[in-house]
């Protein structure tokens, strides 16, 4: 693969993280020795997890000076939004890297709530909170030493494309090393799909899954993985685990099902999907072994937290995007 990566001029590469766990940055390191291949074709101009940079360094760059920016993490506060816009201005190609940037990811589940209710929980009633004065973060605080600023916490979590134009998506929580190298190769060779595409395959995780599926898969009862001894050969869905594999874009090599864990859906919806949650809900419940309403209700009712299960990584880009805020507020 190293030979293929010889480009005449080195790619100017920026990597940034916003509302994310850092796993996407680790994933870049997980390519192991191939990081040298990347270094051979790219100048890494920005990578906060590895090297120290200041905003003013970025501001100094000319517009379009960066060839490719790999942006991971969702956008949840004003600093992240500012950096997203700034990097957009400096980059020719913007890549939403990882599930958070692509779909909002795990942080996106905060869209079930709003800033007010989150602050009430986090700075209010959680068991570990001691905050008798009810202090909540303020964007501006005056102290004797001067004015302090912290970023503004937004009411919503946004995917990257919801705040700036994005050229490509590389899904995964985190993207697997193979996915990372596919993306890097595509960028290095200029062999890129049409703008707006997801770099990856168009088949679902099931396509890569080695488990055996029966001709008439049916679900007798829903379980959570810890509740049963998982049969290592048989399709997880048929064992009653809410495996998202059939509704989720492949490319991960079916990693989770490979280790007896149901697919969580981190690679996001399939290309023709209307709404990944609706897709998964429809598929999983349609094959529940129930012929009348009471039975269906009892069996489907055992599924814990359908929203969290079906939109674990994708809530902000789903059809409904977030839970309704209270009627007047």
């Amino acid at each position: 693969m190293g030979e293929e990566l010889k480009a005449p001029k080195k790619i100017q590469l920026a990597m940034y993280w916003a509302a994310s766990c850092g796993g996407c940055d680790m994933a870049v390191l997980d390519v192991n020795e191939k990081i040298l291949d990347i270094a051979a074709v790219a100048d890494i101009r920005l990578w906060p997890i590895a090297m120290d940079y200041k905003y003013k360094d970025i501001e100094k760059w000319a517009d379009g000076e960066i060839d490719v920016c790999l942006f991971n993490g969702a956008v949840r506060n004003s600093e992240q939004l500012h950096l997203a816009r700034l990097l957009r201005q400096k980059s020719k190609v913007m890549v939403a890297f990882g599930s958070c940037a692509s779909f909002g990811g795990i942080p996106g589940l905060a869209n079930l709530h709003c800033k007010k209710t989150i602050f009430e929980a986090v700075y209010g009633y959680t068991a570990s909170t001691v905050n008798p004065e009810g202090t909540t973060p303020q964007t501006h605080t005056h102290v004797p030493e001067g004015d302090l600023h912290i970023p503004e916490f937004f009411d919503d979590v946004y995917s990257l494309a919801q705040v700036i134009p994005v050229e490509y998506y590389v899904p995964g929580c985190p993207p697997t090393p193979e996915t990372v190298m596919t993306a890097v190769n595509a960028i290095a060779t200029g062999n890129l799909p049409p703008v707006g595409s997801t770099i990856g395959i168009s088949k679902a995780v099931c396509d890569e899954c080695k488990r055996t599926k029966s001709d008439k898969p049916g679900i007798v009862e829903f379980h959570r993985p810890q509740e049963i001894f998982v049969d290592a050969e048989k399709c997880l869905l048929e064992q009653g685990l809410t495996c998202m594999g059939s509704a989720t874009r492949g490319g991960c090599g079916s990693l989770c099902p490979g280790v007896n864990m149901p697919c969580r859906g981190c690679y996001g919806p399939m290309p023709n999907s209307l709404d990944v949650g609706a897709d998964a809900l429809s598929a999983m419940t349609s094959i529940v072994d129930a012929a009348e309403e009471g039975d269906a209700r009892a069996k489907v009712g055992k599924m814990v937290d359908p929203l969290g299960t079906f939109y674990r990584f994708t809530l902000p880009v789903s059809m409904l995007r977030r839970a309704a805020r209270p009627l007047q507020g």
Partner: peptide
């Protein structure tokens, strides 16, 4: 069936 997107999960067979 759009064969390019089908991953052979067999769920359709059941319904």
């Amino acid at each position: 069936v759009l064969t390019d997107s089908c991953s052979g999960c067999k769920i359709c067979q059941d319904v």
